[in-house]
Design a protein around this nucleic acid. Structure first.
Lengths: 201, 201
DNA sequence: ACAAAGTAAACGAACGTTTGATACGCTAAC
DNA sequence: GTTAGCGTATCAAACGTTCGTTTACTTTGT
């Protein structure tokens, strides 16, 4: 009676463990005891470790792009859409560490099957829309690379946070999603040389 | 006689294995057999797995920033220095996968001691110089965040390469370091809106 | 000869997985 | 209203394998 946990609850626990310590770094016993569950019971819900890991990854990814896609498809002007996208992305990454860590791990492990799943099911439609938006906003740049770069600027500022703490010049506010979003947008809109200085070149 | 391997050669093997599959994903037996060495011999060179891992990480990082630092400290004008830095960084990341993968893994694992080592011994002086360069080039932006963002743009374009292959709009040339460097610089110097369009806003 | 570098074999612990028995929640028959 | 039955969930215990590490011994280079 104290036990009785459902599949979804197990997946939430597995998500946290796998995203933090990786596939090989987490044992079935780790997850079982974190769920206050016997290891035999864990195998009642999932056939093997691979299946549990895959389900946890999918759980972490499902529905995660819906919000971003809605922003991209709104009928505001292109520049506003990009601005909102960056805002929302920063918000999501700040709230949910799991998502970002899984993306990093999948990039590192490089399993072809799971990368294809990521590309098609998670990021596919999102990237198509973002590519198109980039083409509209900045016709002189390669839209595919630009889309990737924008995502990368934001992702890196979040994933490098643990290191940045120890780097010279660190300030607490550099971790705030609003600050990060604003900073990225500043670079994108005006580049390094502010417009009023450009004439003097 | 076939055996007889030195510490440095073991570390090169360990670097490759650990960077690709992580600490928990590689066993001492894996590394020993990859060196064509008995596991006992491995323990003759390193006291335990942690020591071997740490030595492999350090091996991957040592001297890696020297080239970048030289570029930063050259007496060319600031904009040229940044341009060269991005060029060289792209070159390094293209040649050496190990370095980037270890950085990613250290960011993920978040071990405080190793992060401090990374921050102080590997990136410390580099970041100080880059911060100062950013302050010179772009006084209106936060130099610390800007330095981090520039590094992040480049890093992400390389670490996302395995995923990008499966994303819509992929082109082979998006993997070339020269193309990536040029793209990043384009964004930085002019932003998304090219100067001749800026007047129409 | 002696230290350094190699080996085979074993240690206990932890791993993924399986087994067989036990408790629970529900429905249907009495 | 009780109870027999049944599928589902939980459990303790064990399987064989691999893990990190140690031991005792042999080979090698100088």
């Amino acid at each position: 009676m104290a036990g009785r946990i459902n599949r979804k609850e197990i997946l939430v626990v597995a998500m946290q463990q796998f995203s933090n310590r990786g596939y090989a770094g987490v044992s079935m016993r780790n997850i079982a005891s974190a769920c206050q569950l016997n290891i035999g019971s864990l195998y009642h819900h999932f056939n093997d470790k691979q299946e549990l890991y895959l389900a946890a990854v999918q759980q972490a990814f499902t529905g995660r792009s819906a919000h971003l896609l809605a922003v991209l498809k709104s009928n505001k002007p292109p520049q506003n859409r990009l601005s909102s996208l960056i805002d929302v992305l920063c918000q999501i990454l700040d709230e949910d560490q799991t998502f970002l860590k899984f993306v990093q791990r999948e990039l590192l492990d490089g399993d072809e099957r799971r990368l294809k799943y990521l590309a098609n099911q998670v990021f596919g439609t999102l990237i198509i829309e973002l590519n198109q938006l980039c083409r509209q906003i900045s016709p002189q740049l390669d839209p595919v690379l630009l889309a990737n770069t924008i995502i990368g600027m934001v992702l890196h500022l979040f994933q490098s946070a643990p290191l940045r703490q120890h780097l010279p010049g660190f300030q607490q506010e550099h971790q705030q999603p609003e600050i990060i979003s604003q900073h990225v947008q500043q670079i994108l809109w005006q580049g390094l040389i502010s417009p009023h200085l450009r004439g003097s070149l």
